[in-house]
Amino acid sequence: MRYLVSVIDDKSNPGSTDRQPAISAFNERLIAEGYWVFAGGLADTDAATVIDNRGEQAVFSDGPFVESKEYLAGVWVWEAPDLDVALKLAAEASKVCDRKVEVRPFQ
């Protein structure tokens, strides 16, 4: 089963910025234990562009699709046998990156 693990940061109360070494070590472990599929940190939401091409022509707009205090700061994709395994890893992930994380299964 694949799970998307979203790292949620908070603009008014951001997590600490010195987590990279710990996250790298955690990623090494995810790879070694066979859970790792993908991981990536995201640039600031200011760098986002929304494209809507459902109409006559594509419309580009600056900024994220939704403005909010909380935003997606990065993602993991994990392969785990069930939610209990994913939640256990997610609890560690939250500590490691000092941010909230959301676990959501792929269809």
């Binding site: 069930d82 939610l83 209990d84």
Partner: peptide, 10 residues
């Protein structure tokens, strides 16, 4: 079902 919450004793 969707999140695969396991059916087992922890």
């Amino acid at each position: 079902k969707a999140a695969r919450i396991p059916y087992r004793v922890p």
